[in-house]
């Protein structure tokens, strides 16, 4: 009986990995296909930006340099192959190697997304658990109102509000770029707070319903305190569905770097992606989209596999 649930969870993890690969393949195909269909000609834009004048020869030269004169499927397969060999092509806009550019921006994004996810998970779980544990209005009402308010404001407006209050009014925090940990506070809060609101609501709902389960009543009937029932019984039993939500939260935090990095001039992948999109710069765009998608899909897959592990221990079929 010991190894059977490990095997079950392993099967789930394998299935998740297969699904994740399929999702990423479809995502790359769609990104590339749509971009090819709808793209304005990048070469023309480059020549115009570089020379100020557009001539047919200059455009053709740039097209050949970038490989844009090759057939569409060849370009797609080339780009896809490059993902595995590390040859991600060159940026049409800057002319530099995409792998190098992406590598430099990966660190700041991972830092920011991690900070945001930590804010979301810590704040969301604690406030959600607090709301589930007590029926006192003084505790529940602020949590409820606060989470509703956070869900009602778009992240970029939240960013601007943060700048207005913490930088302009009180002069506490920097607003642009990377300059030590204080510059991390506002972007991480902008990513983490709305997600904390989502997580708090899910946590409260899940824990409350688990606390109504007969086994929670049995535990209380043995004389356990509400806090011990919450931590010892309700939380482990609500863990599987909560893990799935946490996986989503981490994935969404990665995507939310698009907004937070643009708003705060944070030199990461999200900022890179938005710029590439505005320039229809294929190779950087493909690399950034797929990297963020890989992160989000892996977070979901990992969380889902862990949840399956918990479920398998409880004898729930997956």
């Amino acid at each position: 009986m010991g190894s059977s649930w490990v095997a079950a969870a392993g099967r789930v993890a394998g299935r998740r990995a297969g699904e994740g690969a399929a999702v990423l393949l479809v995502a790359s195909l769609l990104t590339f296909g749509l971009l090819t269909l709808a793209a304005g000609d990048a070469a023309t834009a480059i020549v115009f930006a570089r020379d100020g004048v557009v001539t047919a020869e200059a455009v053709a030269r740039v097209r050949a340099e970038l490989g844009l004169d090759q057939p569409v499927p060849v370009r797609y397969l080339h780009g896809l192959g490059g993902l595995f060999t590390g040859e991600l092509g060159a940026s049409a806009r800057t002319g530099r190697d995409v792998a190098g550019e992406v590598g430099a921006r990966l660190g700041p994004t991972v830092t920011l997304a991690t900070a945001g996810a930590v804010v979301a998970v810590v704040l969301g779980l604690t406030t959600g658990a607090l709301a589930a544990l007590t029926r006192r209005r003084v505790v529940r009402l602020p949590i409820r109102v606060g989470s509703l308010a956070l869900l009602s404001v778009p992240a970029f407006a939240l960013a601007q509000l943060g700048v207005l209050l913490f930088a302009l009014q009180w002069g506490l925090l920097p607003t642009q770029g990377i300059a030590g940990w204080p510059s991390l506070v506002l972007p991480a809060a902008v990513i983490g707070l709305p997600l904390a609101a989502v997580l708090a609501q899910v946590t409260e709902a899940r824990l409350s319903s688990t606390l109504r389960e007969p086994f929670a009543t049995t535990a209380r009937a043995r004389g356990l305190s509400p806090a011990r029932v919450l931590l010892g019984t309700a939380l482990p039993n609500a863990a599987a569905p909560l893990l799935v939500v946490v996986g989503d939260v981490v994935g969404t935090a990665l995507a939310a770097t698009l907004v937070a990095e643009t708003a705060f001039g944070w030199p990461g992948l999200g900022d890179y992606l938005v710029r590439a999109l505005q320039f229809r710069d294929w190779y950087p765009l493909q690399a950034a989209v797929l990297l963020i998608a890989v992160g989000a899909v892996s977070a979901r897959g990992l969380a889902g596999s862990l949840a399956a592990l918990v479920d398998a221990r409880a004898g729930v079929r997956t």
Partner: peptide, 24 residues
Amino acid sequence: LRASDVVVAVPALLVGVVLAGVLG
């Protein structure tokens, strides 16, 4: 289910941004 899996697995913001950017 598989089709919706693909859509749901990738964060909605990323899908929206790429599609909106590409579609103009």
